[in-house]
């Protein structure tokens, strides 16, 4: 056993620690134009989505369709799909690629539709944005859930081309959706042997997601 140390030393240490906490000030940075634009872009999508989800006159089918349109307009689906396929994009045939991109589109839309199905008054609070380069920005936001103490941190990777913005990745609590899917798909291709095998797995998954949503045909 060690001898208990002098209480004054403890007291001084504690004071020093407190002083350090108080000294910490948030830093401010000058935002680039792309960051401001990207932030407004995400805010407007959030508003659009919430009003869509709050519209109780819509059936699941209509809502899914409208969400799909929203998604196709604002997400860079083809670029994301290509990134997710990684090195296999080059070896895939033209028809495999086409099938894949269409399946990927459905896969994401139906996946999201289900997530939004449990909508319970969540709100997206856009907190700020920072530019990565001249036409790429990361928008920081958080999902505020009513009755919950902790918020979910969501970062959006947004790119500007010819004056219009598109989402290239969604990062939830540090986990990139595109990166996770890339790993997932690589493992599936390894098991099934080819991109055609991946497309088969995707098709089954999409059918399953549709069924869970109660959509037919």
């Amino acid at each position: 056993m060690t001898r208990p140390c002098c209480p004054r030393v403890v007291l001084i240490t504690v004071f020093a620690l407190f002083a350090l906490i108080l000294a910490a000030q948030p830093s401010t940075a000058v935002a680039a134009p792309v960051a401001a634009g990207a932030q407004d872009f995400i805010q407007s999508i959030a508003n659009e989505t919430v009003s869509l989800l709050q519209d109780e006159s819509l059936q699941t089918e209509q809502r899914t369709e409208r969400l799909g349109r929203l998604f196709n307009r604002h997400f860079a689906v083809e670029e994301i799909a290509q990134f997710v396929l990684g090195r296999h994009w080059r070896t895939a045939s033209e028809s495999e690629r086409e099938t894949y991109v269409e399946l990927f589109r459905d896969f994401i839309v139906f996946g999201y539709a289900q997530r939004f199905g449990d909508f319970a008054g969540e709100r997206l609070r856009v907190r700020g944005a920072s530019a990565v380069d001249d036409n790429t920005a990361i928008v920081n936001s958080e999902i505020v859930r009513p009755g919950q103490q902790s918020n979910v941190r969501v970062d959006w990777r947004v790119m500007e081309t010819n004056g219009s913005f598109q989402i290239h990745d969604v990062v939830v609590e540090g986990v990139s959706m595109a990166q996770t899917q890339r790993s997932d798909f690589a493992a599936t291709i390894r098991q099934r042997g080819s991109v055609a095998g991946l497309n088969q797995a995707l098709q089954q998954k999409v059918a399953q997601l549709r069924q869970q949503l109660g959509l037919t045909g």
């Binding site: 896969f107 996946g111 990166q179 996770t180 899917q181 890339r182 790993s183 997932d184 798909f185 690589a186 493992a187 599936t188 098991q191 991946l198 797995a201 995707l202 998954k205 997601l209």
Partner: peptide, 11 residues
Amino acid sequence: TSLDFYAALRS
């Protein structure tokens, strides 16, 4: 929303 849950979770 994953095809191979093991691989998706690992990532």
